[in-house]
Simulated scan of single mutants.
Amino acid sequence: MQFPDLDSFIAARPPAFTKGPSAMIFAEDGVEIESTLYHHLNAGFKSVVLFGHPEFKLDRKLQTSVIRVNYDMAAGASLIDAVNAAISIAPGAWLYYCYNAEYLFFPFCETRSIGEMMTFHGEERRDAMLTYVIDLYASNLKDAPNAVSLDDACLDKSGYYAQARLDPEVHNHPKERQLDFFGGLRWRFEEFVPPDRRRIDRISLFRARPGLVLRPDFTFDDEEYNTYSCKWHNNLTAAVCSFRVAKALKRNPGSTHDIKTFHWHNSESFDWTSQQLMDLGLMEPGQWF
């Protein structure tokens, strides 16, 4: 199924998408689009939608299993606008968004589906889930000059921290159960990253409802959606393992020549398992065992 633009997708209200759980993948370039789509199909999403330029090629299997929406990110099309439009047609459905070369991991995802996790999370009276964007990068930039390598991916095993999220409307008092999280390449190479793009937290998984709005900083206008847990115990969190920052730092003329390697003493090979991320404290199983 393919739509010529966002408006036609919204008007069609594809039944599988509006029921969910559904994944929206936004392709900024042609890097690892197919691996991103397969990863999220394998995670158990009932509907996977690719928003990207129509010239991006997909293999035959993906052509029949993925919904395509012509949406040129390079020409200024906005992830935020598309997600907010999608919210309007899928009340009650669990939705997820990410870019290409980003891969969702959640506790025990090797043996449990995204639908099972969302059902459990909803039973805990939660309508959104905090995700940490964990930077991935090739350990050898000579072999992978764009910093992307699925077979040689690394991540930082330490260097992550949190700060209170201040509320300017209440004399900058800290917001309840909200924190700003930092780390990874955005922290190590912060001189090349604008201050408003250094956080690594996103609310990537959420239940749509009428009037809900995703803001440009990947938080919602409903403050409860932005909390990391409920008031009575810890909740599940997930990780979006992402080559996006590494790609940008190597593509940007202002940083590429200053970065010879992303590897440092706290680098660790990524084994593509949820257990590694839980062992490193990069996501929380909460009460889900």
Rank of each mutant, 00 (worst) to 15 (best):
I25Q: 01
V31S: 10
A138S: 14
R125L: 08
I114V: 15
H53W: 03
R60P: 00
P145T: 11
T131K: 05
F105R: 05
Y132H: 15
Y103K: 08
Y97T: 10
N84G: 14
K142C: 02
Y103V: 15
E28D: 14
S88Y: 06
F56E: 01
M73C: 07
D72Y: 08
E55A: 15
S65A: 09
F108D: 09
G44V: 12
S139L: 06
E34L: 15
R112L: 13
H40W: 04
S35Y: 04
Y132N: 14
G76F: 02
Y96A: 05
K46A: 12
E102A: 12
I33L: 10
K61M: 04
Y103D: 13
V48A: 11
A75Q: 14
N42F: 06
A75V: 14
M129G: 12
A86V: 11
K142W: 07
F105Q: 06
I67K: 05
G76C: 09
G52A: 07
A74S: 14
K46M: 13
V49T: 13
P54R: 09
Y103R: 11
E34H: 08
F26H: 07
A82V: 10
A128P: 06
I114F: 08
P91S: 13
V48I: 13
E28S: 13
H39S: 10
G92K: 06
A138Q: 01
S35R: 10
R125I: 05
A90S: 15
N42R: 06
W94G: 01
G76D: 05
L41V: 15
F56I: 04
N84P: 11
E123F: 01
K46N: 15
Y137W: 05
V31H: 06
L141I: 03
E116G: 04
A101Y: 02
E124F: 04
L41H: 04
I89K: 11
A75R: 12
E116I: 06
S47T: 09
E124P: 02
T64H: 04
H53A: 10
S113N: 14
I87F: 08
A93L: 09
A86H: 12
N70D: 15
Y132A: 15
R126H: 10
T36G: 11
M73Q: 06
G52E: 12
V83D: 07
G92L: 08
M73N: 09
M118F: 12
E28W: 10
I89Q: 12
E124W: 06
T119N: 12
V83L: 09
I25P: 00
